[in-house]
């Protein structure tokens, strides 16, 4: 069944593939174009650098007149991200415009990572450390960056085992994760 919102999402997907913004990627799930999964790479030269953060985007038939519900699946430590992964970002709420598309949403969230808005804290500890103890803040961010690699490896594990099973056996588990990271990092530069 095609509806206006589904047709719009197909165009969003086509645009993401033909003109991919740096450091973000996303695609609809196999059986539902209203449910997307996305990856945001942590921006370079920020505490989030090298992180591979997974997100889910849930659209409704009101899209693009209503924003999708966007959540981090990977663990996040950020002043504007709630414990359940939901994001406090004005363009996803009262500043939404129907001219935004998936690429715009993902790049906005990517830039939010290093430009938190301390006026609307969703994680009060992250907000406090960001303002009062930047070193501790960056240490906590580094922890979730490292966790994002583990989650990334777990979720992609099936495909890796099928395609690279002989090589994977010879390597310690940690190095398998590193290999995945290299792929991810080169993807973000492309």
């Amino acid at each position: 069944m095609t509806t206006p919102s589904r047709r719009r999402l197909m165009r969003d997907f086509k645009k993401l593939q033909e003109d991919p913004p740096a450091g973000v990627s996303g695609a609809p799930t196999e059986d539902n174009i209203l449910a997307w999964e996305a990856i945001i790479f942590g921006p370079q030269e920020t505490p989030f650098e090298d992180g591979t953060f997974k997100l889910s985007l849930e659209f409704t038939e009101e899209y693009p007149n209503k924003p999708p519900t966007v959540k981090f699946i990977s663990k996040m430590f950020h002043p504007n991200v709630y414990a359940d992964g939901s994001i406090c970002l004005d363009i996803l709420q009262n500043r939404w415009s129907p001219t935004y598309d998936v690429a715009a949403i993902l790049t906005s969230i990517q830039s939010l990572l290093d430009e938190p808005n301390p006026n609307s804290p969703a994680n009060s500890l992250a907000a406090q450390l960001y303002q009062e103890n930047r070193r501790e803040y960056e240490k906590r961010v580094q922890q979730i960056v490292e966790q994002s690699w583990l989650n990334f490896g777990e979720n992609e594990g099936d495909a890796v085992m099928k395609d690279e099973a002989p090589d994977a056996e010879d390597l310690p588990a940690g190095e398998v994760v590193d290999d995945q990271m290299d792929e991810g990092a080169s993807g973000s530069n492309a």
Partner: peptide
Amino acid sequence: CGICRMEFESACNI
């Protein structure tokens, strides 16, 4: 069209 992302001379999504 910034809303449906189709060319103005194409039909809108509806």
